[in-house]
Amino acid sequence: MVNRPACLPARETDTQPGRLGFPMFVQQLINGLTTGSAYALIALGYTMIYGILGLINFAQGELYMCGAFVAVLLLATGQVGLVGAFLAGMLAAALLGVALERVAFRPLRGSHPLVPLLSAIGASIFLQSLALLLFGPSDRPFPVQLEFRTVEVAGLPVSSLQGLILLTALGFMALLLVFVRYTRYGKAIIACALDRDTARLMGINVDRMVALTFLVGSALSGAAGILMAMYYNATYPRMGLLPGLKAFSAAILGGVGNIPGAIVGGLLLGVAESLGAAYLSSGYKDAVAFVILILVLLLRPQGILRGKGH
């Protein structure tokens, strides 16, 4: 169970670092935004759960993996369409997230903060090795061959796959913002995050809101997993490990507990990583996120946009 970051099929590093120049810069920027949008989606889950419970759901990366596997397996049957498989993947991740909260978090509420953290790590290992047993260690390609070409947007080349991924991810983020700001349930979640006891006094069922937070956050992580399974054309049991950790860095970068912050942090981190791989060294690509994480914690621990959790 060693993390082998180098084996990630990195489609975006096919440009040689030697050839600099504006087109390559833009290309790397777009690559970075694409992976960054996935980090942002996972970071939203982290940040919402942190906001309401004050703890890190370490298994967030496994929800990402779960979404991808369910969608890929459904698509491979040939019975389900792309949209149907996508929604089913998100639903599976969401349900798994709610189950996780029940099993690994709820019984531990009120204990030393170390304990739920360690239990989430345990859950993460469990899910990863379960996937390894069920699906085997090898990469699965995305079963549907999507026809994609490069389109010119304002004179710049953008692959339409990247465009689709970016738009889908941004769409989910917009939906989430609307949900949180303008719906009863969204506002109830925010109320619980602000002050759980007062929210309870106001007649909000806190346990239900916690479950709802896990449901929404996990669905978004699942969506990110499916999008990245399309982008990298690979689905495998350990696929969630690094994106999960990086998304956590993104959540901290944006300010933990801050929803727009998670989006900004995710996109920024994706771009930083992509530019770092292109201009510094591709071997150290996966280290970029963690170096940024340590720097942020040193210089501005509250994140770019001030977060609730310190």
């Binding site: 903060p113 690094l242 280290a287």
Partner: peptide, 28 residues
């Protein structure tokens, strides 16, 4: 020095990230 002022859960991720960085350095 820089990280132990953080809460437990931040520290967990930082140390995990440190582990990944060391692993990557050893590999490269």
């Amino acid at each position: 020095l820089p990280t132990l002022r953080l809460k437990e859960d931040y520290l967990a991720i930082v140390t995990l990230g440190f582990g990944v960085i060391v692993d990557i350095i050893l590999l490269n």
